[in-house]
């Protein structure tokens, strides 16, 4: 038997309840997002002028909003936005964190001091304040709010990548590489990077839920996605205008959001237990 690490991962994953339930939840969200045009009964921005603010019924299972748009269709299409936030946001954070963390850990000295000082700085300003400042500079919108949240959250990646890089840097195979005349970029990309990939996967899966929550919060404040986007945060913010006349507007997008975040949480815990049991807290 020649088992690859990936096969080993799959074998132990079958016994990890957190991972299985989380993976199932996220798979269902991906399924809904991909098949949104097939599953949604209406277009997400298709107004039904006669049916404004209708409570849930057979025709509109999740009710309609103030423009008579079907909330079920909005929630279904919103899954696309949420997955987009999760993937793009986490990727930008990872890219920034890996680049800065590796440079810092590999070169040490002044580069390290300066880069880690920037990370400290981003850490001591309350996240939302920094994000709001970035949104002010870039302007409102989904992409800008994803960038803003990434500029806040990359420091966790940088810290861990830096620590890992520093630990790997002193191992014999790195010295061998240097002795063979490999340049610093090659050492970092071909020798060190493959060794931090497991830790990176764990970090990505732990970072997904908070990325979704923070970016959706910006949409909720009216600074992220703009109408008529089916973004769940935006839908909830719209629901705030009708708390006394249309409670369903505030309920269904919220349930969808919590379902997705809960799935990412379980998946993250599962992946961490499977890849790096030592990181598990009490």
């Amino acid at each position: 038997m020649n088992e690859t690490p990936f096969m080993e991962f799959l074998i132990s994953a079958r016994r990890n309840a957190n991972f299985l339930v989380g993976a199932f939840i996220i798979a269902s969200v991906v399924f809904v997002a991909v098949l949104a045009p097939v599953l949604a009964p209406y277009g997400y921005d298709e107004p039904h002028k006669a049916d404004r603010l209708q409570p849930p019924s057979a025709k509109y299972p999740f009710g309609t909003d103030d423009f008579g748009r079907d909330m079920l269709s909005k929630v279904i299409y919103g899954a696309r936005i949420t997955l987009q936030i999760a993937l793009i946001g986490t990727f930008i954070q990872m890219f920034l964190g890996v680049t800065i963390g590796m440079l810092s850990g590999y070169f040490g000295g002044l580069v390290d001091k300066v880069l880690m000082y920037i990370a400290d700085l981003a850490w001591c300003i309350p996240g939302i304040i920094l994000a709001l400042a970035v949104v002010t500079l870039l302007g409102k919108g989904l992409n800008n709010s994803i960038i803003a949240i990434s500029l806040v959250n990359w420091t966790q990646f940088a810290r861990i990548v830096r620590a890992k890089t520093m630990a790997i840097k002193n191992q014999a195979f790195i010295e061998t590489g240097i002795a063979f005349g490999e340049k610093a970029p090659t050492i970092m990309l071909r020798y060190i990077f493959p060794n931090i990939v497991p830790a990176l996967i764990v970090m990505i899966s732990l970072q997904l839920p908070s990325t979704v929550i923070s970016t959706t919060a910006l949409s909720f404040l009216g600074l992220g996605s703009q109408p008529p986007s089916p973004d769940w945060g935006l839908a909830l913010s719209n629901g705030m205008k009708y708390v006394s006349r249309g409670q369903w507007l505030s309920i269904f997008p919220g349930i969808a959001l919590v379902y997705t975040v809960f799935g990412f949480n379980l998946l993250g815990e599962g992946v961490r237990d499977l890849i790096d049991p030592r990181m598990k807290s009490h």
């Binding site: 839920p209 959706t216 919060a217 909830l236 705030m240 409670q247 959001l257 919590v258």
Partner: peptide, 23 residues
């Protein structure tokens, strides 16, 4: 507490408003 970490604070606020303020 694991369940509550999945609920964004702003939605908790919305639910509290719906429950205690509106209903």
């Amino acid at each position: 507490s694991l369940f509550f970490t999945a609920i964004p604070q702003f939605w908790t606020a919305v639910l509290l408003i719906l429950l205690f303020g509106v209903t």
